[in-house]
Design a protein around this nucleic acid. Structure first.
Length: 1001
RNA sequence: GCGGGGGUUACCGAGAGGCCAAAGGUGGCAGACUCAAGAUCUGCUCCCGAAGGGGUUCGCAGGUUCGAAUCCUGCCCCCCGCACCA
């Protein structure tokens, strides 16, 4: 910890001052360029952690930098409440579900902990969470505190949440616009559903739904007519409809229960046999499904020995129904068709049967007229790599699978064969019109054909067995009248592409990616039956879904604080049309609205003006996972609703944050709440780490070790600042910026000039990098590189001189550094101001400064080259001392600079290819008898790395000037170009690389 | 499988034809300071070297080039999306 700076106090002090002074409250300003930056609002279901901190911090850094560039910056924030998760939390807490209650007690304790009464307060708060609105309210309030504590320069006056009336009105307006464009549509849609709750379920409702996602899998059902004259069908479900041509039998589980259901199909009604479980699922997926009561429930054994018709190839082929233990009545229809040539399960089950002799004894084969023969697999897919015959057989042998009880390896075999056959397999001649086509290309066609021929249908299954947190079974239901947004119209896609073309993406690769996403977009459900949010305006009972309601809300920021003063009833479609699209006339609108609400035309104009001032959204900053959902909707909805001048200008994306090399997640137990950052690390250090540890395209790895190391660096910077403010330093020179610079230029030593040159060069680069969003490079420059230069300078000059010189550039340094570590910069800015108040008055906030002018005249190549020359020389001497083991101290060091003729040759050959150098050199020197030394020199020159780059320098002069420094550095006498040269080293000197002779002690 | 990103000297991580034995950081070693520890500073940290040099390195194997960590070809491996599955 630096001597005179308490980070926590500094943070609190400046956060208070920023808030009191309202300097980040953005108002339209005539003349000023505006910059409107947004970062997606946080979801208020719980506390944010440091991972969320990265994106928001980077957003703030950009906002602050843009202010320094002179923009009038609007950086607003709001809170996302819409959707089911918060509702699910409230439900769980209402039901006193232990885990959820415990988790939320933990969450609340982050904020409410710390004293004796806290337990009771936490208890009470969590109890209030039975009301979803309280959950959102509580966390919205805490998150905004967190953000303030992170030093974010947000205009909080414009905050809102996504369930409040102004937002509802706004979203309603958006949907009306989309509806008018004809893209809001209705259709069928499968969802995960809980029968027990008679309600759709999302990730948050499902047990372990967050860690082990449940998705919806589309299976194909195939109907096999039972050959008993009943006209009923055994209905098998499959993920591989293309294998229908290779069916040899059906499988049922002999111990499972099967029922007859009446099913309405296109042609009328049919009787299906499926497992009891499947019958229930079907009832959620189709209309007109009825289980036939009474006599129809049978165990699987009922079917054994029966024969069914395969519905392809004319429908004539008959196959037996056989028992298999691997069939799960609760997966699919509980009936599986068997393709032993290509499905490892089927192959092994058949082998099991053959081995046990059941098959022969059952007599079923006899009935089929295949006396004594066994059932033979039918191979229908040709694939390289499975040469010996049957793929299923081959892989079972390869994996040494012996029976259907070996489920683990059977799974593996199934996976492998699926992938191989899907991508490389080709249907063979047994597959009729589909023969000769790759599975990957034909699968869907077979599926469609089965449906078309009324031989097959669709059945949805969950990707794994799942239950809700309440214990209810999760099944797939098909909503018959789901509302969608249809992104397929070509006018829309074209506008979307055009919008993207006109934008900047950083990293740039995401631009092409976004074009692709737009092409892929099709239908997107946009309303749900439950959850918090805006009522769907076109049908009762639906709520607008949470990604669909947060697409163009940036527009609302521009006017949210103004809308608050208006009656909600006045926020009509006409109102928003006027404000956002400039449709209509303020007076007329005021008159129409004014009758009931009294909103004056001048107010309407003011609202419209503010929108027009701030829009478009100049930059949206977020993380890549948003690209294929939120961001594409953000862009497409702008493309649909707004005129081109209101289209977003840029998107920047930073990767996520991990901790100690691992993903940050609740289940890993490695979450650090954002609220703890100040206490554990300090906010400025956190911000610096976010800025410096990785560029946008890379993951930030939060490693304690690295954080500590950076903390030490940061402390060193702060101490450096402190040092330069000490009284001595100030009195020595009265080192005001003006006068120090005016250390009259003739007073500046070479080292002084060097440091100033380094500083201004760095400053210039830093600003360029900042402007290109290369925040990491900018930060590294400002902290690491400058500190290294200063350390070097200190050794060249002195600590005292360093303090004075740093003092000269401190002000400018603070300004450019302030976007990253604003608190400490404000603090030193103020200390400077207090120190200098008699000579100069500063503005009170570094946050409100402009980027310093780069003093080009201090950027001096010559000075830097001289210093490099010197540093290389010092390094060479050290190397010699080390290798020659001259210690402790040499008696004297002799330095010999290159003779003039060498410089002449150097200059003459510098740009020539190596082959020509020698010839040219000999010609330039032009003296007989000197050829050998000339050639030796050129050879040396070619070998020497430092000599390669030509730069004119009067070496002896520099050395004379720096003699004292060299003496100090090596603690001995230094001789420059003296006669004494016992080992004849002089002749090895080349330009910029003097020869050296060290006389040992 | 498709798309994207990678594999660099103990670790993290820059570098994208010559100025590269390769920034910076971490860790390690030695020294300075200190009663001591910590912090800080200095030096070293691929191998050899009693003179600033030489040798071998940037996933593997080839190639282009006067010259390759950097460009090309093939291969192996890892990560992330998506798809496909279960």
């Amino acid at each position: 910890m630096p001597k005179n700076t308490n980070f926590k106090q500094v943070e609190a002090k400046w956060q208070r001052r920023w808030e009191e002074s309202g300097i980040f409250d953005a108002e339209p300003r005539g003349g000023a360029k505006k910059f409107f930056l947004t970062v997606p609002y946080p979801y208020t279901s719980g506390p944010l952690h440091i991972g969320h901190g990265r994106t928001n911090t980077v957003g703030d850094i950009i906002a602050r930098f843009k202010r320094l560039q002179g923009y009038n910056v609007l950086f607003p924030m709001a809170f996302h409440v819409t959707g089911t998760p918060i509702l699910a939390i409230a439900d769980s807490i209402s039901k006193s579900e232990g885990e959820v209650v415990k988790l939320y007690k933990e969450y609340v304790s982050i904020y409410e902990g710390g004293d004796a009464a806290s337990a009771a307060r936490v208890e009470e708060t969590v109890r209030s969470f039975t009301d979803a609105a309280r959950v959102a309210e509580f966390f919205a309030a805490r998150i905004s505190e967190d953000f303030k504590r992170m030093g974010y320069s947000i205009d909080w006056r414009r905050k809102f949440n996504t369930t409040e009336p102004i937002y509802n009105k706004f979203v309603e307006w958006q949907f009306k616009k989309l509806y008018d464009k004809g893209v809001i549509k209705k259709g069928k849609y499968p969802i995960t559903f809980s029968a027990a709750d008679n309600s759709p379920v999302g990730e948050d409702d499902i047990e372990e739904g967050d860690t082990n996602k449940v998705s919806i899998v589309e299976q194909t059902t195939v109907k096999f007519e039972v050959s008993d004259g009943s006209g009923s069908y055994l209905v098998a479900a499959t993920l591989r409809p293309e294998t229908i041509f290779g069916v040899t039998n059906l499988w049922v589980n002999p111990t499972a229960k099967y029922v007859k259901v009446k099913v309405r199909v296109r042609a009328g009604e049919e009787i299906w046999w499926v497992s009891k479980e499947a019958a229930e699922k079907l009832s959620y997926q189709r209309e007109g499904v009825a289980v036939l009561e009474g006599e129809t429930e049978e165990e699987g054994g009922f079917f054994l020995g029966k024969v069914v018709k395969v519905p392809v190839a004319g429908g004539g082929r008959e196959v037996p129904v056989l028992p298999a233990s691997f069939v799960d009545a609760d997966v699919g229809t509980g009936v599986v068709y068997s393709v032993p040539a290509h499905a490892p399960y089927d192959y092994i089950a058949l082998e099991d049967l053959k081995r046990s002799g059941v098959l022969k004894r059952s007599g079923v084969l006899k009935r089929l007229g295949v006396l004594d023969a066994e059932i033979e697999p039918i191979k229908i897919i040709e694939i390289e790599g499975y040469e010996t015959g049957l793929p299923a057989k081959e892989i079972c042998e390869r994996l040494e699978i012996k029976s259907q009880a070996d489920e683990e390896r059977l799974e593996e075999a199934t996976q492998t064969i699926y992938k191989d056959e899907f991508y490389r397999g080709v249907l063979n001649e047994k597959c009729g019109e589909f023969a000769g086509v790759k599975i990957a290309e034909i699968k869907d066609e077979v599926k469609e054909w089965l449906k078309r021929e009324n031989k097959g249908d669709v059945f949805y299954e969950t990707s794994r067995k799942a239950v809700t947190r309440g214990g209810g079974k999760v099944v797939v239901a098909v909503l018959q009248d789901q509302w969608f947004i249809d992104y397929t119209p070509s006018w829309w896609k074209e506008r979307g592409h055009k919008l993207v073309d006109g934008m900047t993406f950083y990293p740039a690769k995401y631009k092409a990616y976004m074009h692709e996403i737009i092409d892929w977009l099709t239908l997107r459900p946009c309303a749900r039956k439950r959850g918090l949010g805006t009522r769907f305006p076109f049908e009762q009972g639906w709520v607008i879904e949470s990604l669909s309601d947060s697409t163009i809300y940036m527009a609302l920021y521009t006017v949210a604080h103004l809308l608050r003063g208006l009656p909600v009833e006045s926020l009509t479609e006409d109102f928003f049309d006027f404000v956002f699209l400039g449709i209509g006339d303020a007076e007329a609108l005021a008159k129409a609205a004014g009758v009931e609400t009294g909103v004056e035309a001048s107010v309407l104009k003011r609202v419209q003006e503010e929108f027009k001032y701030w829009y478009p959204n100049d930059l949206r900053h977020t993380a890549p996972p948003h690209l294929s959902n939120h961001l594409v909707f953000f862009l497409m909805h702008h493309a649909a609703i707004f005129p081109e001048r209101c289209w977003p200008r840029a998107i920047t994306l930073n990767e996520l944050m991990i901790r100690e090399g691992r993903k940050i997640s609740k289940s890993k137990g490695n979450v650090i709440p954002l609220a703890k950052v100040s206490e554990l690390y300090g906010v400025d250090l956190f911000r610096l780490y976010c800025a410096i540890n990785a560029d946008f395209a890379s993951v930030v790895n939060w490693r304690e070790q690295d954080v500590d190391a950076l903390g030490r660096r940061f402390n060193a910077v702060v101490e450096l600042f402190e040092d330069s403010l000490t009284a001595e330093c100030a009195t020595v020179e009265r080192a005001t910026v003006e006068r120090a610079k005016g250390l009259r230029e003739d007073e500046l030593t070479h080292a002084d000039r060097w440091l100033l040159s380094r500083f201004y060069r760095t400053l210039k680069e830093t600003v360029e990098r900042f402007a290109a969003f290369r925040i990491r490079d900018a930060g590294i420059n400002l902290v690491f590189n400058l500190m290294n230069d200063i350390r070097h300078y200190e050794q060249r000059a002195s600590v005292e001189r360093r303090k004075r010189l740093v003092r000269c550039v401190l002000e400018e340094w603070l300004v450019v550094l302030s976007p990253i570590v604003p608190h400490i910069c404000e603090e030193f800015w103020e200390r400077l101001r207090l120190q200098l108040q008699r000579q100069r008055s500063h503005d009170s906030f570094v946050s409100l400064q402009r980027l310093p002018e780069v003093k080009e005249r201090f950027i001096d190549d010559r000075v830097e080259r001289e210093e490099e020359f010197l540093a290389a020389l010092v390094a060479d001497i050290k190397e010699i001392l080390r290798v020659a083991r001259i210690s402790p101290k040499p008696r004297k060091i002799y330095i010999y600079t290159a003779e003039q003729w060498k410089w002449e040759i150097f200059k003459a050959v510098k740009d020539l290819p190596e082959r020509e150098k020698i010839r040219k050199a000999v010609r330039v020197r032009g003296r007989k008898g000197e050829e050998k030394s000339t050639v030796d020199f050129v050879k040396q020159l070619v070998k020497s790395k430092s000599g390669l780059e030509y730069f004119e320098l009067v070496e002896a002069e520099v050395l004379e000037r720096e003699k004292e420094y060299l003496k100090g550095e090596f603690g001995c006498e230094i001789g420059v170009n003296e006669e004494h040269d016992p080992l004849g080293k002089r002749r090895f000197a080349i330009p910029l690389k003097p020869a050296i002779f060290v006389e040992g002690g």
